[in-house]
Simulated assay, not measured.
Amino acid sequence: MLRFLIVTLVLAPVAVAQLVTYDFNNLNGSNPYPFTLLDAQDSWSEETFNATNRCGVTATLSHDATQSLRFQEVGPGFGCDASRINDANFGFPPYVGTETNAYFQADIQVGYWGGSFGLAYDTDLDGRIRGYQPGELGVRFRVGTHANIQLQLIAADGTSVSAPLSSLGPVSGGDWLRIGVTMDLTAANGSGLGAVDVQNITGGATMLTPVPGLQAVPLGLDQTAGNATNPIAWNAVWLHFEGATYGLDNIQIGVKLVEYQVNSPLARMIVDGVVGSISSPATVNLAVGQVAMVSFQSSNAGTVWEVGMGAAPLIPASAGAFLTPDGDLVNIDLADPLFSFLWGGFASPPLANMTVPISFASPTSISGQLAVGDPTSITGARLSQPVRVIVP
Rank of each mutant, 00 (worst) to 15 (best):
V96T: 15
G97A: 11
T98A: 14
T98L: 11
E99Y: 07
E99I: 06
E99T: 09
T100V: 12
T100M: 08
T100R: 14
N101I: 02
N101F: 09
A102C: 02
A102Q: 00
Y103P: 00
Y103Q: 00
F104L: 11
F104N: 00
F104S: 03
Q105N: 14
Q105A: 05
Q105C: 13
Q105R: 15
A106F: 06
A106V: 15
A106C: 14
A106Q: 02
D107M: 06
D107F: 04
I108H: 01
I108W: 02
Q109M: 15
Q109R: 15
Q109T: 05
V110N: 07
V110Y: 06
G111R: 10
G111Q: 05
Y112I: 12
Y112M: 07
Y112T: 14
Y112G: 05
G114V: 06
S116T: 07
F117I: 05
F117L: 03
F117H: 02
F117E: 01
F117G: 00
G118I: 03
G118K: 04
G118Y: 03
G118V: 02
L119D: 03
L119N: 02
L119K: 00
L119P: 01
A120E: 00
A120K: 00
A120W: 00
Y121C: 03
Y121G: 01
D122M: 09
D122N: 12
T123Q: 15
T123V: 14
T123C: 08
L125H: 11
D126I: 09
G127M: 10
G127P: 08
R128E: 13
R128I: 06
R128N: 11
I129K: 12
I129F: 10
G131C: 03
G131R: 13
G131N: 13
Y132C: 08
Q133W: 05
Q133G: 01
P134H: 10
G135I: 06
G135H: 09
G135W: 07
E136V: 04
L137N: 06
L137P: 01
L137R: 15
G138I: 09
G138A: 10
G138T: 10
V139E: 01
V139S: 12
F141I: 04
R142G: 04
R142M: 09
R142C: 05
V143G: 08
V143Q: 04
V143M: 09
G144L: 11
G144H: 13
G144W: 12
T145K: 13
A147W: 11
A147V: 10
N148W: 09
N148L: 12
I149Q: 13
I149W: 07
I149K: 14
Q150Y: 07
Q150M: 11
Q150F: 05
Q150S: 11
L151W: 13
Q152S: 13
Q152F: 02
L153N: 12
L153R: 02
I154K: 10
I154D: 05
A155Y: 05
A155H: 05
A156T: 02
A156R: 08
A156C: 03
A156M: 08
G158Q: 10
G158Y: 04
T159Q: 13
T159M: 06
S160L: 15
S160G: 02
V161C: 01
V161L: 09
S162V: 07
A163N: 04
P164C: 07
P164Q: 08
S167V: 14
S167P: 00
S167Q: 12
S167D: 14
L168F: 09
G169R: 13
G169S: 13
